[in-house]
Amino acid sequence: MEPLIRTVNLKKYFDVSGGKLHAVDDVNITIPKGKTLGVVGESGCGKSTLGRTVLRLIEPTSGEVYFEGENITKASRGELKELRKKMQIIFQDPFSSLNPRMSVFDLIAEPLVTHHIYKHRADLTDRILELMEEVGLAERYVNSYPHEMDGGRRQRVGVARALALGPEFIVCDEPVSALDVSIQAQILNLLMDLQDNLGLTYMFITHDLSVVKHISDEIAVMYLGQCVEHCPTKELFANPMHPYTKALLSAIPVPKLRKNFTRKIIRGEVSTPIDPKPGCRFASRCDYCQAGCTGSDIPLKEYSPGHYVACPHCVELMEKKE
């Protein structure tokens, strides 16, 4: 079956003072309808850029994006406007993503008004109250402003806005990172319920593996613009293969006191995303770096059904461990 979302060799390069910054470099992902792809990786590795390029909020440098089998890379403005109804985004930052001068009513109304969905004010009001209920926001907040609400409620407004037009696909860009664990759990449960009820498809961006574990069917691990490992969620936690994925998993802070404990820090110079040299971009920080790791690019290879890894030595490494 045709996946809802598919990218082919997607690239986004930015011009910065030092040259061309390869924020997304040759990424191929697919997301089947009704499923969630988790995208994880360190700060600055290109997760948000990938999400925004898929939505065409940013123009790709090259490559293609398919939505329901249709190439939307060259979609016109008019076509894009229609697509916007089907593809939405929820941002991390409930501070800067909501206009501070707009009330909750206006914020949720905005997408509906922009797309001229309702002729009558009463219908608009009904829909807004319905959305507020759907995301668990008490009706009395309808006239509040973002700064008068806490982070959890602000994020519910963000979710309601994204849902307003009845989308099929939502990019969730770190939607819970700024929230405390309890509210995180509430918002994650909300997103999962909405997925069940509305058949939504998600691309879930996060740097927090414990969050993504609960919500994703598959996970793509990114490092400096590239996807270095991709497999079903369970498989990733049971058999992480790329050295970077392993480092990520071992560095998760644990809510227990451990005397004189310091987490393992990945040492070594971060290689530059600006006009990068060919070869593995993690090599300079990798404990297992060998001759073949630099010089030419390392493609993703399928090591077991559905488990793709971009590391020529990952199998040896697995064996060494045992």
Partner: peptide, 17 residues
């Protein structure tokens, strides 16, 4: 105030150190 919320664990470890 929430200095490391947007950071992945590896960079978070660096900042906390």
């Amino acid at each position: 105030d929430e200095p490391t919320t947007a950071l992945d664990v590896t960079i978070q470890a660096q900042v906390l150190e």
